[in-house]
Computed example of a mutant assay.
Amino acid sequence: MAFGRRRKNKAGSTESAEESVQSAAGTENGAAGGTDGGPEHGPFDVADRPSEEGYVDLGALRIAATQGLALRLEVEETTKRVVAVTLDLDGSSLQLQAFAAPRSETLWDEIRTQIVKSVSSQGGTADELVGRLGTELLARVPAQAQDGSKGYRVARFVGVDGPRWFLRGVFGGPAAMNPDAATALEEVFRNVVVVRGDAPLPPRDLLQLTLPRDASPLPKRDAETKPEPPQRGPEITTIG
C-alpha cells in the first residue's frame, strides 16, 4: 500500500491536475443508503468493527489494507488540515470524506439534490440510479480532452448515513461507469470503518483525518522519466 499527499491552494482547488464535479454529505444505520445494509455489509461504524488489525488508521477513517491500493491524503493549504483521502486501485480512484450528521436525521437525499443543481449549473447532467451501493448519482460535466476535443468527465457519487456520521464516496476513472472495473474499489468502500468520536460537532463538519503513523511519501519520479499525462478525478468541495 503506497502513500502520498496532495495539497489544496488558497482558492480551495487541488494543486494536482485532478478536478471534479461538486460533492457533499449523511444517515443512520451504517450501510449505504438504499442497500440491503446492516453491520455485516459495511461501511462500518467503529462500534461494529473496533479492531484496528488489518486497517490503516487515518483518524476518522480506517481503510482496509489491500494489495495494490495507493492512498493519497489531500491537505488544505491554509490550515494544513487533511480534508480527504483518495484511494487509487487498478486505474480507478475513490475519494472519501466523512462528516458529522444529526442523530435523528439523514443527509444523503438532500445532498443528492445539491449535487444535481451544481452539476446542472456547469452544463452537465446527473442521473440518479440504484446501484450495488444503494442510491447513487452518475454525473457528467463538459470537459476538454487532452487532444482539444470536447467531452465529459464522469464521477459516480455514493453516500452512506451512519450513526451521527455521513460518508461520501466519489468514484472516478473506469470504476465510475464500468461495474466490473468498480468491483475491487467497491469492496474497499464496504470495508471502511468510520470513527465518529464523542466530540459535539455541527452537522456537515468534516471529521478529522490524520496521517497514518507509518506513512511515507510516494517515491519521486526520476527526472529523466517522461511524466504521465494528468488524469481527471474528484476534487474537494465544501458542503453546507
Score class of each variant (00 low, 15 high):
F3E: 13
G4R: 08
K8G: 14
K8A: 09
K8F: 12
K10P: 02
K10Y: 13
A11Y: 11
S13P: 02
S13W: 11
T14D: 10
E15Q: 13
E15K: 13
S16N: 14
A17P: 07
E19Q: 05
V21G: 15
V21S: 09
E28R: 05
N29G: 11
G30E: 11
G33Y: 13
G34C: 09
G34Y: 04
T35E: 12
T35L: 13
G37R: 06
G42L: 14
V46Q: 10
D48Y: 04
S51A: 15
G54Y: 08
L58A: 10
A60G: 09
T66F: 11
G68N: 11
L69K: 02
E74D: 11
V75I: 15
E77Q: 15
T79V: 08
K80H: 15
R81C: 03
V82E: 14
T86P: 02
L89T: 09
L94C: 12
L94A: 12
Q95W: 03
Q97G: 12
A100N: 02
R103L: 15
R103M: 14
E105A: 14
L107V: 04
S120P: 01
S121G: 07
A126Y: 04
E128Y: 04
L129R: 13
A139G: 01
R140L: 07
R140A: 14
P142C: 12
D147G: 05
K150Y: 02
A155H: 10
F157L: 00
W165G: 01
F171S: 01
F171M: 00
G172R: 00
N178A: 12
D180Y: 02
A182F: 02
A182I: 07
A184Q: 01
L185G: 00
R190P: 03
D198E: 15
P200Q: 05
D205E: 08
D205V: 02
L206G: 01
P212I: 11
P212A: 07
P212K: 07
A215S: 11
K220M: 13
R221P: 06
R221C: 01
D222R: 11
D222G: 08
T225C: 05
K226D: 07
P227N: 09
P227K: 06
E228N: 10
P230E: 14
R232Q: 09
G233E: 06
P234V: 01
